[in-house]
Amino acid sequence: MSDALSEASDLSADDSQDVMTPAELIAKLEEAWLNEKFSPELLENKSEIVECVMEQLTHMEENLQRVRKGDVKASIHRMEIDRIRFVLSSYLRSRLQKVEKYFPHILEKEKSRADGDPSFLSPEEFAFAKEYLANTETYLKAVALRHMPPNLQTVDMLKAVPEPCLDSFVFLRVKERQENILVEPETDEQREYVVDLEEGSQHLMRYRTIAPLVVSGAVQLI
């Protein structure tokens, strides 16, 4: 898993050196949005994309300030900005929801991350997760724990908060052909088997099996 992740980050680093058109950038944001929406775990942060999109939006808004009111073109530009902003907010919001839901596990993963590996969280998300953990602990202490017998006054957040369920099923569309994807059996009577994922085909299978492909961008969750 960690190999696949570092490979993917290399790839994205390469991508950023190529010149990406704004249209491609928006398409990338939409891909990231859907992937984040449908994957059970928190995916790697795409701060590069988010920053570039923010830049585009700010730039466009600055230009629009100079245009007089009631201009037809300006209204079309505003509509487009609103649409992009919607995707961007929804993307960031679904990440924060995951942080709120899995914060101890996400922070634990962050702690065990080797130096040099890219972080899953943006600096802002990291700060949010830490604060969320601290606040939850303070709250539990104030409301319940301090009234407990001394030996029961601690709670292990890692055990108290469920882990993301990587065995969930997901729907996906294949962007790059993949061969020999192992499908694990559901029951003891069944045998495991392999499938080829043809480009453009759509599948329903366990997230765990294809998680590395989501990271590398070979499949798109739908």
Partner: peptide, 11 residues
């Protein structure tokens, strides 16, 4: 059938 994989083309 307790399948573990399904192909859903054209959906």
């Amino acid at each position: 059938l307790q399948e573990a994989h399904a192909k859903l083309d054209n959906l």
